[in-house]
Design a protein around this nucleic acid. Structure first.
Lengths: 186, 186
DNA sequence: ACCTGAACACCGTTCAAGT
DNA sequence: ACCTGAACACCGTTCAAGT
């Protein structure tokens, strides 16, 4: 007969599951991580995961949201008072660490609203940061257009792993070209 | 006892399978299409698909390659003598019809070389077409950089379905900004 | 060489039954 | 409320056996 009734508060168990899931997703990718893997790493039976999350996609979405908020918080603390462009570049650069999971979000967000919401949260963060950058330039023109372009470029750079320049290289070039200031060194 | 030995040449059966797979992938997506679906649509048993293709990913890759070459051929015929930018825009616009499958390529190309090759073929087509566009501008500067940016932007625009402008809107803006000619109407 | 039915492997998810 | 083992559902893939 199984050991049951482990007196662990709900939030702690959730946190354990998320921590285990984060590590596994990062190491083995979305498809390479099973619910059984996650539950085993957290010391529970597979079925028990469904007591805390409705589905694998929801675990995944929660993991991604957690990652983003941590990254955003870290950046705010670390780069206080730095110019917006540096912060943007730094954020995008850090996010390259989970490009693989970024790709998986795209394939899952069709079917899971949770994943879609997590993904949108990523784009919102980037868009907001881009706005700050744009407002920093003197001749700021079409804010929305520039933001769309940068966000889209980031998506493309992260998703494709053909021999293309990383977004962090292309974005400063683009900024200068679009905003018509600074170096103009295309 | 099953009907066997259907005297159909290998190429015809392959073509039937590909035609069936194309339609199903377009309608139901990669994950929504099973080998059983494809084989049924072609009138054979599921296992028989593996006589012609090593795996589902290889069927998928073949479908995508077929689509691209048809599209490219159609464009060459249809837009003969047109300016390169129109052709690029038109090609990218047509490709939006299978954005969903484009996304699936990204998630599968990690594990399947065939899918990766098919995907690279797409990017090659775009890159080549972008080169033509760049060479069309008088003050052509960094050809490679511009191509990278456009290709990446296309990837991003196709892959994300958040409320972003389509690549076909952003690209002309970018071209003008990067090449420093024409309207400059950012 | 081409085709089949049956079985295997894997995994997300459900559920009745425990504490 | 929380946890479990067992079973279900689905699907890509394999394989021995047909023609």
């Amino acid at each position: 007969m199984p050991k049951n009734r482990q007196q662990i508060p709900r939030e702690q168990r959730t946190a354990e599951l998320l921590a285990a899931a984060t590590e596994l997703f990062l190491r083995n990718g979305y498809a390479g991580t099973t619910i059984a893997d996650i539950s085993a790493a957290a010391g529970v039976a597979p079925a028990n995961v469904y007591w805390y999350f409705p589905s694998k996609d929801d675990v995944f979405a929660a993991v991604m949201e957690r990652m983003l908020s941590r990254e955003a918080r870290a950046l705010e603390h670390e780069l206080q008072g730095m110019e917006p462009l540096s912060m943007l570049i730094r954020g995008l650069d850090d996010m390259r660490a989970f490009r693989d999971l970024h790709r998986s979000m795209h394939s899952r967000m069709q079917e899971s609203v949770a994943v879609r919401e997590a993904h949108d949260r990523f784009l919102d963060w980037i868009r907001t940061t881009v706005y700050r950058v744009v407002d920093d330039y003197p001749g700021a023109s079409d804010r929305e257009m520039v933001a769309d372009i940068i966000v889209t470029l980031f998506e493309g750079a992260n998703v494709s792993d053909s021999p293309l320049r990383p977004a962090t290289v292309m974005i400063p070039v683009l900024m200068d070209a679009l905003m018509g200031t600074k170096s103009k060194s295309v």
